[in-house]
Nucleic acid binder design. Structure first.
Length: 478
RNA sequence: GGGGUAGUAGGGUAGCCUGGUCCAUCCUAGAGCGUUUGGGACGCUUUGACGGCGGUUCGAAUCCGCCCUACCCCA
């Protein structure tokens, strides 16, 4: 049993594990014949559905959902100079309608600022319209030249949540940035994914932003994955697109804006953070199947057991759980492995022995078997799923904590990175010293103002020049 | 950005230089039948492929051209 765990590579070989699990667990099919475009299998899409339902619920507290067109006319796209510079090499252009060349080329949105903001200019009239907080969940296209990777580096981002807000003042927009960071923290907390927040260095901020706050997670191999960004756009775009309002004194003022994005990388993080050598481990809130019932049907008791399993399923479904019953003609062991690969949090084994005892065997995907009473099964399942969530959470926090450290010199920084860690150092924020750090370590400066509950981040002197510096995250990135 | 290697069934490979129907082969792959079922069962039968388009040829997985895709290395 322990000498052959199938052909899923060990999680220690993270890259191979990741690629393999995507198709074995039926999340993404990479065989679509266009580079950088991948197909969601129904099971993967079901995970996406639950994850994005959570995201929508959080956003809907304070934002409204909208939908803007995919195509952006060239002249709008080309309005904001910095923005163009950031994206022009990655834009797909629609140049023809049928066989007729178009007078105005149309960009497939790489992000939607230039689609949304001309409309915001029309919608915004008065200070009473503020703040405006809208979001959409859409696909976007970027002609990536680097190696593409399912869910991580795509030419079609299929699940891009972008929120765009307008405020009366820069300070209010800043408060919105903080609000959205808090919202992200809550979102990722629900997925049991520990995050680190930092302020990206100037050279790495969103094209057209005053500043960019980024959300990173530490993958199993110690590389960081950016899984969210919140940008303070200031007045860059409102100037360009004339997003103005009449204030209380009757004066025309520019709005101050933010935008905020989360993509299917959140699902890459979900898969990577929690999975193990046997496959996926899904936190119950994200699991398409929260509990699977495996009836153990032997000989004559076949009908009894099946009937009991049906009843169990109906009881749990009525209580709001997502439950499947596996009656396939396979050996129980084979079913166990099959569902474990797919990350189902809880397995309920029901056989003649259990039936006689009025119990059911509950096996957590995180390990550990317990017998629970059939009489109180819905309460028990609630409790056990809660324990599973807690276990997943704790494990992820331990991983993150153990991959973070604070160092005070270049040499110790290099050593820490080579151990697969992400480090906090002090840096003066000058490009020159930043270049030294990145070259010496072959890593990236993720950002300053590092915020994490998993490592202390206090400002000290720059590890390169010795001048006053800020707590800065350095790591190898995806 | 520069260079290299490759694409054969669900997955993994051989065959290619030296064209000859290719019965190619392995698997935890598919279909069917039967026996099974408390941690990956087994037997029998069977299906299925040469990345795409075009060319050369009596004949192409094999040779030529273009395209697509993937992987690796270097900057």
């Amino acid at each position: 049993m322990d000498d052959d765990l199938g052909t899923l590579p060990q999680k220690g070989d993270f890259s191979a594990w990741y690629n393999d699990i995507l198709w074995r667990a039926e999340i993404m099919d990479v065989r679509y014949p266009v580079k950088g475009l991948y197909v969601w299998y129904p099971y993967g899409f079901a995970i996406r559905k639950h994850v994005y339902a959570r995201l929508r619920t959080l956003l809907d507290r304070d934002h409204e959902e909208t939908l803007f067109p995919l195509l952006i006319p060239e002249q709008e796209f080309m309005k904001e100079a910095e923005h163009i510079k950031g994206f022009e090499d990655e834009v797909y252009w629609v140049t023809h309608g049928g066989t007729t060349p178009l007078d105005v080329k149309l960009a497939l949105r790489p992000t939607s600022e230039t689609a949304i903001y001309p409309m915001y200019a029309l919608w915004l009239r008065s200070h009473a319209d503020l703040p405006m907080k809208y979001y959409q969940i859409v696909n976007t296209f970027r002609y990536e030249t680097k190696q593409t990777r399912p869910l991580i580096r795509l030419r079609e981002i299929t699940s891009f949540m972008e929120s765009h807000t307008v405020h009366a003042t820069w300070d209010e927009a800043e408060a919105q940035v903080e609000y959205e960071l808090a919202l992200s923290r809550e979102f990722y907390d629900g997925l049991c994914i520990p995050i680190i927040i930092s302020k990206r260095p100037d050279w790495d901020k969103f094209p057209g932003a005053d500043y960019t706050m980024a959300i990173d997670a530490i993958m199993p191999n110690g590389k960081t994955l950016q899984i969210g960004t919140v940008h303070h756009l200031g007045e860059h775009f409102s100037k360009t697109f004339s997003i103005t309002f009449e204030d209380k004194n009757g004066e025309q003022k520019l709005g101050s804006q933010t935008c905020y994005g989360i993509s299917e990388r959140c699902i890459a993080a979900l898969i990577s953070m929690h999975g193990d050598d046997k496959g996926l481990i899904l936190p119950p809130v994200t699991a398409p199947v929260q509990a699977v019932i495996v009836p153990i049907t032997i000989g004559k008791r076949h009908e009894d057991v099946l009937a009991a399993a049906e009843k169990l399923k109906n009881d749990l479904t009525a209580a709001g759980f997502r439950v499947k019953i596996d009656t396939r003609d396979m050996r129980p062991g084979a079913k166990y492995y099959w569902w474990e690969l797919r990350g189902v949090p809880l397995r309920l084994e029901l056989g003649p022995r259990d039936l006689d005892a009025g119990k059911v065997m509950a096996v957590k995907r995180t390990g550990e078997k317990t017998q629970i009473e059939l009489a109180t099964v819905t309460d028990e399942v609630t409790r056990v799923l809660g324990e599973i969530t807690a276990a997943i959470h704790t494990r992820a926090e331990e991983h993150t904590q153990s991959h973070l450290c604070t160092v005070a010199s270049l040499d110790t920084l290099v050593a820490a990175l080579n151990e697969g860690k992400v480090a906090v150092v002090s840096w003066c924020q000058h490009k020159g010293c930043g270049d030294v750090i990145e070259e010496k370590t072959n890593a990236s400066i993720l950002g300053t103002n590092a915020r994490s509950q998993y490592v202390s981040a206090t400002d000290s002197v720059c590890i390169v020049c010795g001048k006053p510096g800020k707590a800065t995250l350095v790591g190898r990135t995806y």
